[in-house]
Design a protein around this nucleic acid. Structure first.
Length: 698
DNA sequence: TGAAATTGTCATCAG
DNA sequence: CTCTGATGACAATTT
């Protein structure tokens, strides 16, 4: 076994935590006022920060700060920016997290628009605000959807009032003019959607403002596929959301609904995965409580509302438990502790639903230090895992775990992708678009991940199987009744884009955007109800896959589908790798070209320098020759020899214009000047000590 | 509206 | 012979 010749390889290590670590450090520095080099004054209130951070997040700061030179500069923000609006933005700049409540979201949004906070306007507010506020209108309302509406040029002044109407009007504050792009801040266009109810219903409810928005939405060239699919009866919202949303809309979010309905703020649900098919199911709701002034008038004003929200939240949680208990074998009743209530009462909640290890204890509510972080562990039974042990299960589990890992990574990746990556996500979710309630979807298990891929900021992962009626983010899902009945499809099917292939109709796909083969695949996928997900199939090794095939009884159709799907999935990944390699290769070649160009520049400079020296040297030689010729009274023979060693660019004739005549009188021919090469060689000879010629001349 | 970019799929080849 | 990965080519879609 001959070893191949050693090759120099270049490896790249990319840390996934580095950036967050850096950001955390910066935030820490900011809070300790370490290395802060700018003071931002808002409404008389001062905020210390780092210029680079601010400039990295905001167009406004980019332009303002670039003109600041002195250290410790003070920046006074325009009056449109309020302290209440700016502070969360500042924190967002340092943490990537925006905490807001219904009472201050518009202020924040205003400030964000004025300051040109990247990623927020379009990514967050346009997506979130309509949902956020529409939820207060009652869950019966068809949720509205936002869409890029750059074409709309609405008036942009003042701050929005806290009313839905205003929201719908989408008043926008034009960023201070420094960035043309920002002046075209995309604004949400309201797209009513409610599954099959379609736009009619919503438009009726939402009034003219929404209608205009609808137009904008439908005109939006982007995500046309989604829109088309919407027309087929699916909720457009999901269309726009990432696959993850659509993929798992079978669930709903309970707690988040209450948080949204109440003055609570954002919800963010971590990707939690609920396993079907006996896989263990874990649910956790983390509630980040924000310190609030409950005694404020605002708080009191909303007391009733919150109470209702809390009640609803509890109901929904219990419902979630019930749902999951239906799905799985047994689930303990979920009780919400008083501390949780406290947390829930707080406005500005951030709800995380994240997977937790299944716990045997009753729901646990923990409180972590510092951040008033409540964790409710909604325990699910873990029967299957405990009883698991059969080979097929282990294979599937392994595959699903892998799929989960990759799926989650993929989800996160997608979440950070720019809007143009909807396509990648599209396969995942998909289905909501379908008006066909039978469009097979797994997941009464209720694992849901709501994501706004197109808005790379918003990442909502919902994993509770409760009603989503009050969740501003999941209303659409709920209303579209995206209860995937994917006959026994395992949950991991809902974790990756690929999985959607066998989950029936893909949201995207229904838009007929895919080719016939894809339609065929979908059709097949619906027909072929596999007991496991596509991810499982794709992620299994060859042996495991074959083992699985042996252990399970498949129809011919299923077998064909499985093989076909595995082949295409793998090929798709291979194509992606291949393209990436190509790009890397191109990049490397470009680097190489740049390197060579630099090298060439260096050589050119050196050449120029040498040429200069050469000219100088020749000049010196010519001067010397001239002196010798004029003072030594050389004989014609000597002149002839000398001519031979004169440089080509300085022939002897240039020193002795009459040398021709002189030599011809002596009957001697004029030796032509040596070629440059010869001359150089002769020069070297001379230098090396061959001075005979010189002596001879003398 | 057309060009460019992106992505999935198929066919083919090599290991 | 089968499976898998790589890759060119093509088509559909998005930007």
């Amino acid at each position: 076994m001959a070893m191949s010749a050693p090759r120099a390889s270049v490896f790249t290590f990319e840390s996934t935590v580095h950036s967050s670590h850096v950001l955390r450090c910066l935030d820490d520095q900011r809070r300790r006022d370490v290395m802060c080099d700018v003071t931002v004054v808002v409404e008389g209130q001062s905020f210390r920060a780092h210029r680079s951070v601010l400039a990295s997040c905001s167009e406004y700061f980019t332009h303002r700060i670039s003109s600041l030179t002195q250290h410790g500069a003070v920046l006074t923000l325009p009056q449109e920016v309020t302290a209440a609006g700016f502070e969360p933005l500042l924190k967002f700049a340092y943490t990537s997290k925006l905490l807001f409540g219904k009472d201050n979201v518009l202020e924040i949004r205003n400030s964000s628009s004025v300051l040109g906070f990247r990623d927020l306007d379009e990514a967050c507010f346009e997506f979130l605000l309509p949902k956020f506020f529409s939820s207060t209108k009652g869950s019966a309302l068809c949720p509205r959807k936002t869409c890029c509406k750059k074409k709309r040029q609405l008036s942009k002044t003042g701050s929005c009032t806290d009313s839905d109407a205003v929201l719908l009007e989408e008043k926008e504050v034009k960023p201070v003019d420094y960035s043309p792009s920002q002046q075209e801040v995309a604004r949400p266009c309201e797209k009513s959607e409610g599954s099959k109810l379609g736009s009619q219903k919503s438009t009726a409810t939402l009034a003219a403002a929404a209608e205009g928005a609808n137009d904008g939405f439908m005109r939006c060239p982007k995500y046309r596929k989604f829109q088309l699919a919407c027309g087929k009866g699916a909720c457009a919202a999901e269309k726009r959301l990432t696959p993850a949303i659509r993929d798992e809309c079978g669930l709903s979010c309970s707690p988040c609904s209450s948080s949204a309905n109440s003055k609570n703020e954002t919800e963010r649900t971590n990707p939690a995965r609920l396993r079907d098919n006996g896989a263990d199911q874990r649910r956790t709701t983390e509630i980040h409580e924000k310190t609030i002034d409950v005694g404020s008038g605002e708080a009191e004003k909303n007391t009733n509302e919150r109470e209702g929200d809390i009640m609803k939240m509890e109901e929904e949680m219990e419902q979630a438990a019930r749902v999951s208990s239906r799905d799985r074998s047994s689930v303990e009743a979920v009780s919400v502790g008083e501390s949780t209530r406290l947390a829930e009462r707080s406005p500005g909640l951030i709800l995380h639903h994240c997977p937790l290890r299944a716990s045997a204890e009753a729901p646990v509510i923990t409180r972590s230090q510092g951040q008033e972080r409540f964790v409710m562990d909604l325990k699910d039974d873990n029967k299957t895992r405990e009883s698991g042990g059969e080979e097929p299960v282990s294979i599937l589990q392994r595959a699903e775990e892998q799929a989960e890992t990759e799926g989650e990574r993929g989800i996160m990746d997608r979440a950070t992708l720019p809007a143009n990556n909807t396509r990648e996500g599209s396969p995942v979710g998909s289905d909501e678009g379908s008006s066909d309630p039978d469009a097979g979807r797994s997941s009464n298990t209720g694992s849901g991940q709501l994501q706004a891929t197109s808005e790379n900021w918003v990442k909502l992962h919902v994993n509770l199987s409760s009603s989503s009626s009050d969740c501003p983010f999941l209303q659409d899902l709920d209303q579209s009744k995206c209860l995937w009945k994917g006959a026994g499809l395992s949950e991991c099917a809902s974790h990756s884009g690929v999985s959607s292939l066998n989950s029936g109709e893909d949201g995207d796909s229904e838009t007929e955007t895919e080719g016939d083969s894809e339609a065929y695949t979908r059709e097949r996928a619906r027909q072929v109800q596999l007991p496991f997900s596509v991810d499982c199939i794709v992620n299994l090794s060859r042996n495991e896959f074959q083992q699985l095939l042996k252990q399970q009884v498949f129809t011919q159709e299923q077998l064909e589908f499985v093989h076909d799907m595995r082949r295409r999935s793998k090929n798709r990944l291979a194509a992606q790798r291949c393209r990436k390699r190509k790009l890397d290769c191109i990049h490397n070649l470009q680097c190489e070209i740049n390197k060579l160009k630099t090298e060439r520049e260096k050589l050119m400079v050196e050449k120029s320098h040498l040429s200069q020296m050469k000219v100088t040297a020749r000049h010196s030689v010519s001067v010397l020759c001239h002196r010798v010729c004029s003072e030594a009274h050389l004989q014609p023979e000597q002149l002839q020899v000398l001519a031979k060693y004169m440089p080509p660019d300085c022939p002897l004739t240039s020193l002795f214009p009459h040398i021709d005549a002189l030599l011809s009188q002596s009957g001697l021919p004029l030796q032509p000047p040596a070629s440059e090469e010869d001359w150089c060689r002769s020069g070297r000879d001379t230098v090396t000590g061959d001075g005979t010629n010189i002596h001879h001349r003398h």
